[in-house]
Design a binder for these strands. Structure first.
Lengths: 326, 326
DNA sequence: ACTGTGAGTGCAATCGATTGCAACTGGAGG
DNA sequence: CCTCCAGTTGCAATCGATTGCACTCACAGT
């Protein structure tokens, strides 16, 4: 692999000059003809800068750490894809890690990535009470901490839940239950709060242990045990809603004839479920894209304001909701 | 951030000694008591090695590049997850990149990652005719090149297709068509070859432009135009099969009453389609895991044999296949 | 007493790019 | 003619960890 010294020799200049010519920020310091010579030499040799050397000297790496719970959760692929595209706009790349929701593993990953000179982090994992290291630029995606001060990009959970409840009420439902996501995740919590707010009353709620089908199944059974005569269930997200489907089927209840179900996220294939899932479409890809841009902004100016970006959502009505039973 | 010099000073030794004490491979050269002192000092200071410096010196980074077409294709998340877990076993991390099947972008990504001192690559993108740079350890996942010489991990495409054809024949089908994946991808090609082999006759085949639902839709229409009286279609993968569903519906044909359809991969939610998709289950996660291990093996011993790992597959029968019409 | 041995440690070079500072050049201004 | 300045370029230090080599020291063998 050719080094900058090789390029400099070929162009007949000193390595320092070559470095300045190669770097667009310092290129102005070098004579235009020299720049051309260096650039030609670099191309001829197929020169690619050694990023380890550069990182060592500049203390930056153009790499961002992306930490999520589990890539197999269908919300994340499009988000991660958006992140990657956003990072690439600025020549950044993504180091990816999964935590399975394990705080210890998250910590390990975080440290390991930081040791690799990561310039910043995009986290989809933090709990509401997380204290995040402030020294390194960080953006939360699809999550938020209570404390604030950390920039985040999320979908509008509150508006989404209100849309769902309004749609159900419009269909004549009044006995509406909520199978919420985990309390310790901001997504679960915000939707729960919005639900309570939208229903303004003492409404039946159970909390799923996780945003998974299995946890949704289990939590739905608990809900049905407490309140058997519900006509609609607002689930904390689409996977939980699929758990509802299974739980309701196990109790011999039909969707939507006996009971309506709604999800949240509009994951791929939500339209192919039976019945198709009425849900809130969030702009997955854009959430990722915006979070990458926000991170880059923070890296460029760590002292700037900790923006919170909230992206609009959309109601998608499908077969899982129908008129209230009576 | 403390450096190894700080650790050494605190332990009252030279940086070189600290380095040897910290590195398990060279630890034997250092007196046991000294090792303890260094380790304590390191812990007390919260020392984390600067990986840029290490990479610069050792020319390794413990980072592998993972390049795939598009994370939003549902086959990839579980594979990538497996890769990540496999890499982590050895303290490696994954730099992720998407190409959208664009060869130029792939080349750019490859170079950019190589510039970042990537120790090796796992590629899910290469075309059958790709000439891969031999200098850097590379493993192909779910793909293969014609030339050989590059280690790969794939599912057993040939056996899978034979299973499908046999199952269809068993159901009484004889007029079976194939909507194949792209010719230039080994997956598409191998399944096509296996199909021809299994049918041992001049069978109707069209090739989809890509492994996507849209391409499958379009290719299915072409197939139906040529051979209207098929009783079964073997699709190149699940997404193409979903395209078949749509194409058949647009022609007023019912699955499986009028025509049976099979897929390949058993992507998440293949069971939730209507009708549920009969397909070949491949061990996504294990494919990823094995490819990571294989890469690590290659990195450790680049001169070793270029293994080809083929993992077994399984037939999953669901509602999309039924008895032949007549 | 002397040499040989081997364990343990220190010294200093090295990896490649970046950057503050100095040096040089030519031309403008006094 | 001298000074000064702007425009360029070179010099050398620097980032932090690793590693070949040399050195020290204690001890065993003769």
């Amino acid at each position: 692999m050719p080094t900058i010294k090789d390029v400099a020799d070929r162009a007949g200049v000193h390595a320092a000059t070559a470095s300045r010519a190669l770097n667009s920020a310092t290129r102005g310091m070098v004579n235009a003809r020299t720049v051309t010579r260096v650039l030609e030499a670099a191309k001829a040799l197929g020169y690619a800068p050694n990023s380890a050397a550069r990182s060592l000297r500049t203390r930056t790496s153009s790499v961002a750490g992306v930490i999520i719970p589990d890539l197999r959760n269908p919300v994340f692929p499009p988000i991660v894809r958006g992140i990657e595209d956003g990072l690439r706009e600025a020549g950044y790349m993504a180091l990816l890690g999964n935590t399975d929701g394990d705080a210890v593993r998250e910590r390990e990953l975080f440290d390991a990535m930081r040791g690799r000179q990561t310039d910043g982090f995009i986290l989809a994992t933090s709990r509401r009470d997380d204290a995040l290291p402030a020294e390194v630029p960080t953006v939360l995606v699809n999550r938020r901490t209570d404390a604030g001060g950390v920039p985040s990009v999320t979908a509008d959970n509150s508006v989404g839940v209100h849309m769902l409840v309004r749609a159900l009420v419009h269909l004549g439902h009044s006995r509406i239950g909520h199978v919420a996501g985990p309390r310790h995740l901001s997504t679960g919590w915000e939707r729960y709060r919005a639900f309570v707010d939208a229903m303004d009353g003492a409404e039946p709620v159970t909390f799923a242990e996780a945003f998974t089908e299995d946890a949704g199944f289990e939590a739905t059974l608990r809900l049905l045990d407490t309140v058997p005569d519900l006509t609609a269930i607002v689930a904390g997200n689409d996977l939980i809603a699929l758990g509802c489907y299974a739980a309701l089927a196990s109790r011999g209840l039909r969707v939507p004839e006996d009971i309506s179900v709604t999800g949240f996220n509009d994951i791929p294939f939500a339209d192919r479920q039976r019945p198709g899932l009425t849900t809130i479409r969030i702009p997955h890809y854009d959430i990722g894209l915006e979070s990458a841009r926000l991170l880059l902004e923070r890296i460029a100016n760590p002292a700037g304001p900790a923006k919170r970006i909230v992206l609009p959502v959309e109601l998608v009505t499908r077969g899982s909701t129908g008129p209230a039973r009576n």
